[in-house]
């Protein structure tokens, strides 16, 4: 026995009882110890039936994994999308008769607009040089007498939302020097729509999964209560409230949720590793270094917390309902 423990025991005897009723729980430490004991007992009980406990844990984990993966993949897609959007460019092709000086002037004018982040002028000759260097057709191009390429202004919109970009493009088309405005926003819109849809599916799936988890955990708790009916009857006979009788089951539910959440994050990491090794091959073909990023510590924590909350509240609902029905 530790020295402190002995000291408190002694002081207990020396000092008259404080104004608590019949030496009932005085501090949070005692309450904490009581809960710790109940939690330990619940964990031991789970360990006594390892097979069925593991199956339940696994079911909870898989149920949590599905929406987590969908949300995670969608987050990746969204970040991929925003990286494209950051570099979203509008190319403004000028009329053939606009001189280099005039073109530069138009470009400088555009820069003063608040809805344009950046703009730079590419003259017809610059464009030809870049094209010949990139295409490897220098010899052929040298033989041409006139430059077929127009001058252009490449600009980055300040607001990259598809609507704003379309709006900007429409205004640019009105300018007299402008021939064609090219916006590659359609595929961006499609990708954004897909990402949105994935988000909606994720939300619906989450609701379904939460409902499913309530049934899974609730049913498991119901069976556990059924198995310990005699014990609950005795507890009620000697004055235990429904909540008192429910406590061990709340811990059981909490442990299922917590364990399932942790297992789900582990499974998620495995899925991610498997995906990335395959994705690498695909992305090399596209000359991209895109990788699925880990969903992060915070999202792992979120899965565990959500799992624990669902487990606990499902257990609360199930145990109060079934314990109330037990009449001694």
């Amino acid at each position: 026995m530790s020295a402190t423990k002995r000291r408190t025991a002694n002081s207990d005897q020396a000092r008259p009882k404080r104004n608590t009723r019949k030496g009932q729980t005085e501090s949070f430490t005692d309450l904490f110890r009581l809960h710790q004991r109940i939690a330990n007992a619940s964990a031991k009980r789970l360990a006594q039936t390892p097979a069925s406990s593991l199956i339940t844990l696994f079911v909870v984990a898989v149920a949590l994994l599905l929406p987590a993966l969908l949300f995670g993949l969608n987050n990746n897609l969204a970040s991929l999308l925003s990286s494209f959007q950051d570099s979203a460019q509008v190319t403004v092709y000028l009329q053939d008769d606009v001189s280099e000086i005039a073109g530069q002037g138009v470009s400088d004018n555009l820069l003063t607009r608040s809805d344009i982040e950046n703009a730079y002028y590419v003259s017809a000759s610059q464009a030809l040089n870049e094209f010949s260097a990139a295409s490897g057709l220098e010899d052929l191009l040298l033989e041409m007498t006139a430059n077929p390429l127009p001058g252009a202004i490449v600009l980055t919109p300040a607001n990259v939302s598809p609507a704003a970009v379309d709006d900007l493009a429409a205004q640019l088309r009105e300018l007299p020097e402008v021939d064609v405005v090219q916006v590659d926003s359609l595929w961006l819109q499609r990708l954004a729509a897909i990402s949105n849809l994935a988000g909606v599916i994720g939300s619906v799936l989450t609701v379904i999964v939460i409902l499913g988890l309530f049934f899974i955990v609730g049913n498991t708790i119901k069976l556990a209560i059924e198995n310990r009916k005699a014990e609950i009857r005795v507890i009620k006979l000697v004055g235990g409230s429904d909540m008192y009788a429910a406590r061990p089951f709340l811990y059981t539910g909490l442990l299922y949720g917590l364990g399932g959440g942790i297992l789900a994050t582990i499974l998620q990491a495995f899925v991610l590793i498997t995906f990335n090794s395959n994705l690498e091959v695909l992305m090399q073909l596209y000359d991209s270094d895109f990788r699925l990023r880990g969903f992060g510590f915070m999202s792992a924590l979120l899965i565990v917390i959500v799992g624990a909350l669902i487990g606990w509240s499902a257990a609360l609902m199930a145990s109060l309902r079934h314990i109330r029905a037990i009449n001694p």
């Binding site: 019949k22 009932q24 729980t25 005692d30 009581l34 000697v238 004055g239 235990g240």
Partner: peptide, 8 residues
């Protein structure tokens, strides 16, 4: 235990 007595 139901009444919340201290262990000692």
């Amino acid at each position: 235990e139901i009444c919340g007595y201290q262990p000692n």
